[in-house]
Every structure is written in C-alpha cells, then in structure tokens.
C-alpha cells in the first residue's frame, strides 16, 4: 500500500525536473531552430561525390606527389589535422589552422577570411597555392588526365570523360557536401530522444543559448552553430599580424576578424581558433571569459562572460554532446 502511494509521487518528481529545463513547446521551437535541413545537393551528387572522393585523397595532385586534400583534412582528426597551424609542402609553415570541412555543405562563406563564396570556388585554391600543393590549372588538369582511372569516373559524373578544372572543383565540392554531422546526441535529443542528453548537458545548452550567461549562440547560431559571420575575438597572440577578413572588407570592424566555425564534432577538431592557440574546448571557454571590450577592434557581438566552475563544466558537457 505504502509503495503504491510512493511511486506516482516519484514519477511526478522526475518529470518535473525535466520539465523545469525545457517545456515541450520550447523543445518544439528549439527543434525548428537547431535541426539541420538536408543539404542542397547536385542532381548527380552520387557520381560527382565518388569522383570527388578519389580526387580528395590523391597525393599525385601536388607538385611533388606528396600532398592531397586529405593530408590536412584528415578524416580521423575531424577532417582537420590536429596542428595549431597547418603545414604545406616540405613542412612549410602556413599561417592559419586547417579548418574542418564538416558541415561546410551549409556554409555561405568559406575559409577563415571568407575569401571563397562557394565550395566550388574554394576547392581549387589549395591546388594553386605554391605553399600548399604547388600546381597551376594546366598542371592539375594534366595530372588528372594522366591517370586512366579517372576517365570512367568523369564520364559517370558528367556524361563524357573530358577533364577541366571546373569539373574537378564541382566534384570536390560535391564530395565535401557529403561530409556532414547532423545526428549528434544533441540532434537526437532535439528529435525526441530524451535519454540522448543528461541534465548536466541540458543545463550546459541552456547556458550556451542564454544571452545573459555564456551567450555562445549569439555567433554560434542555429542551425549550423555559426552565423557565417566574421568577428575579432581578441586573441592576444596576434604577433602573426593576420589582418583576416580586413583584406577583403577594409573597415576597422573586420581587422583580424575571422569566420565563426561550426561546432558539431568540434570535440574532434582540436586545437581551436584560426591560429590554433586554444588546445582544448575548456581553453576556448576560458578565453571568452578573459577577453573584453578593451581589446583592439574587439567584436561588439561578444558579451562579457562570467561563468563559475560548475557552469563551465556544464557548458563543456554540452559541447561534448555535439558528437
């Protein structure tokens, strides 16, 4: 008899704990905001992507046959390279970190400084950079043409086996559109799997979107955790003197401003920031707690963050659920 009274009480307690975090209506609204739509793909996506994959992993497509796209965009390392700044041919130091290609299918601008408007435009840039792959258009096309295996793949993708740089870039772009992350634990929670996130992670998400608390979502916007925008986040080690977006938009707000990276699977893409100066996600969070408007050309979008130790742990727990 006693147990019989007790159980419904317990059920009410558990339910109200979950209810207190997000109401059903709030979850419905969050789902609308944060779930990624299916990416827009080319009608011949499958064939293009198959060709693009081979091109992406082909080290022959560099001046000394040492380097492919995948030399820096390594699948096992979140399609980045684990280095603070990238290395080019013969270990030549490049000035920025390798950005991950995960969910670039949704990007409106590409590269840390946004110098490419589309994956198609971006895809050829590393081939033609003398420090990265060291080719020119003629060499790239000749190298692809010299490999018999490509002939059939081009024919499947384009209807005939002619090879040119526009076809190469569209195949590479289409392959990159297949590198998506849209079913993280957070996404599964949005879709209705209540067990996908625990309370600590949900509290972390609350902090993430709360404009009075961590306010991460001000820039790491739904649904792709990025506003496709450019911000100077006040990194102190700007000994690199990197003008960032300012090179393309010469107004002071853009001095040393860089693109907001997406966050799904960010757990795999350490180190962080355009200069790779944060080794862990905790260091990222602590950076935003330390910096302030006093920094030169500091983005006005970044509000002061003041989280205690427990709150930081919750926020990190949420970031780790984007996996």
């Amino acid at each position: 008899m006693r147990l019989w009274i007790f159980l419904p009480l317990l059920a009410i307690c558990v339910e109200s704990a979950a209810e207190a975090l997000f109401s059903k209506d709030e979850i419905r609204e969050l789902r609308k905001q944060w779930l990624l739509p299916a990416p827009t793909l080319h009608p011949r996506h499958k064939q293009l992507s198959k060709l693009g994959k081979k091109l992406f992993f082909d080290t022959d497509l560099s001046i000394d046959k040492s380097t492919s796209c995948a030399s820096c965009h390594i699948p096992e390392l979140g399609w980045s390279d684990g280095k603070s700044t990238a290395q080019g041919l013969d270990g030549a130091p490049l000035k920025r970190a390798t950005p991950s290609i995960i969910n670039t299918a949704y990007s409106k601008v590409l590269m840390w400084d946004g110098r490419a408007d589309s994956l198609e435009q971006q895809a050829l840039m590393p081939f033609f950079d003398p420090l990265e792959m060291g080719l020119n258009e003629k060499l790239l096309v000749a190298k692809v043409a010299s490999n018999q295996e490509y002939s059939a793949l081009f024919a499947q993708a384009f209807g005939d086996s002619a090879i040119d740089s526009a076809r190469i870039s569209s195949a590479l772009a289409e392959f990159q559109r297949s590198i998506t992350a849209s079913n993280t634990r957070f996404d599964r929670w949005l879709k209705g799997d209540e067990s996908a996130l625990n309370n600590e992670e949900l509290l972390g998400f609350k902090l993430f979107i709360d404009p009075q608390k961590a306010a991460c979502a001000v820039c790491h916007h739904p649904p792709n955790f990025t506003d496709d925008g450019f911000h100077n986040i006040g990194l102190s080690n700007q000994h690199l003197e990197d003008p960032g977006r300012y090179r393309f938009t010469p107004i002071s707000l853009m001095k040393s401003a860089f693109k907001t990276p997406s966050l799904r699977l960010a757990t795999r893409t350490a180190p962080y920031f355009h200069d790779g100066s944060a080794k862990t996600l905790l260091e990222v969070v602590e950076h935003y707690q330390k910096v302030g408007a006093k920094e030169h050309n500091f983005s006005p979008s970044l509000l002061p963050v003041n989280l205690n130790k427990e709150e930081k742990e919750k926020l990190l727990a949420f970031l780790n659920s984007l996996e």
Binding site: V109, D227, D228, F230, T249, L253, M254
Partner: peptide, 8 residues
C-alpha cells in the same frame, strides 16, 4: 550596401 559581419 552590405553588412561587414555577414557578407551575404
């Protein structure tokens, strides 16, 4: 006319 933060 553009927004420098969001170039699109």
């Amino acid at each position: 006319v553009q927004c420098a933060i969001h170039p699109f």
